[in-house]
Structure formats: structure tokens, C-alpha cells
């Protein structure tokens, strides 16, 4: 009897521990959507990827369909090569789709947004997305604004 009670408690303990672990995995860690199922790889070249990181989401119309799997440098052209793993369910993206690096919110993380093109052919594993838009670098923008201001200010002075 005593033995049975003890076994019951140990069983409850182990079950509760495993339940807690699976709660962490599925409810907190969101294991279910973390992996891209039978995905395919496409890559894209950017002039500047800003703060993009490996594992950043790849979205289509705001819906996440994959993640960035690797970031490297193309030594010949001094450009960034970003490889993405896309979900196999969305295999009908046109070949001339474009990729741009966007920012979620003002200070949020950067992600890749895909825009479908109009081609009849679809993107396949190993393809390269040709049309890309680089990340917006805040310092460059500010620099441009200041430069433009100075120029217009200089013109005004010259006219006087």
C-alpha cells in the first residue's frame, strides 16, 4: 500500500515535470511553428542588410512564410548574400518576386518582405531573387536630409 502511494506520487511528479516542459516548449517557445516544413532555399543579394540577423522572419503580405538561414558576403561584388528557407506550402511565388528589408515598428527587428511579381514561372530551390531593396540606414537618411538642407540653403544665399 505504502509502495503504491509512493509510486503514484513519483508518477505524478514525473508527469507534472514533463507537462511543464512541454508547456514551455509549445506555449512559450512555440515549437510548432518554429520549423519550416519541407522548405526550399532561395537567396537574394543586397547592397546593405542593416541589422538583419539569421533566423529573422521572411514574410509575404505580412504573413511569415520562412526565415533567414544564412548571411554571407559575396567577395566579388562586395554585396551581402542572404539565404532564406521558405515554407514548402508556398511554392508558387513568381520568379520575378522582389525582396526588401523592412523594419517592424520604429525600433523593432528587421525582416525580409517578399513582393510577388508577374512571371509565369515559379521560384524554385536554389533560385536567386534579382530585385531587392536594401535596408534603410537611419544615419544615411539623416545625412541626406542635412545635405539637401545645406544645398537649398546655399542656393538661397547665392541668389541674394
Amino acid at each position: 500500500m505504502r509502495r503504491n502511494v509512493m509510486e503514484l506520487w513519483v508518477g505524478l511528479f514525473a508527469a507534472a515535470g514533463l507537462a511543464a516542459l512541454s508547456m514551455l516548449a509549445f506555449k512559450v517557445g512555440n515549437l510548432t511553428t518554429a520549423d519550416v516544413v519541407n522548405g526550399y532555399r532561395v537567396s537574394a543579394q543586397f547592397d546593405n542588410i542593416g541589422g538583419l540577423k539569421v533566423k529573422a522572419p521572411v514574410t509575404l503580405a505580412g504573413v511569415r512564410i520562412g526565415r533567414v538561414s544564412s548571411i554571407a558576403i559575396d567577395k566579388g561584388h562586395y554585396r551581402a548574400v542572404v539565404e532564406m528557407q521558405l515554407d514548402g506550402r508556398y511554392d508558387n511565388l513568381p520568379k520575378d518576386s522582389s525582396a526588401s528589408i523592412l523594419t517592424s515598428g520604429l525600433l523593432g527587428d528587421q525582416y525580409i518582405g517578399l513582393e510577388p511579381g508577374g512571371s509565369e514561372k515559379n521560384l524554385e530551390s536554389g533560385d536567386v531573387i534579382m530585385t531587392t531593396a536594401s535596408a534603410l540606414v537611419l544615419e544615411k537618411l539623416i545625412g541626406q536630409v542635412i545635405f539637401n538642407n545645406n544645398q537649398s540653403g546655399g542656393d538661397g544665399n547665392a541668389k541674394k
Binding site: 507534472a16 515535470g17 511543464a20 516542459l21
Partner: peptide, 15 residues
């Protein structure tokens, strides 16, 4: 055996 189970319970109930 007990430690990982206890730690998982701790984290889960903490959340």
C-alpha cells in the same frame, strides 16, 4: 532525474 523536472516546473509556474 529530479532536477530538470523541478526546474521545468519552476519556470512554468513562474511564467
Amino acid at each position: 532525474i529530479a532536477m530538470p523536472l523541478l526546474a521545468a516546473l519552476f519556470s512554468a509556474i513562474g511564467i
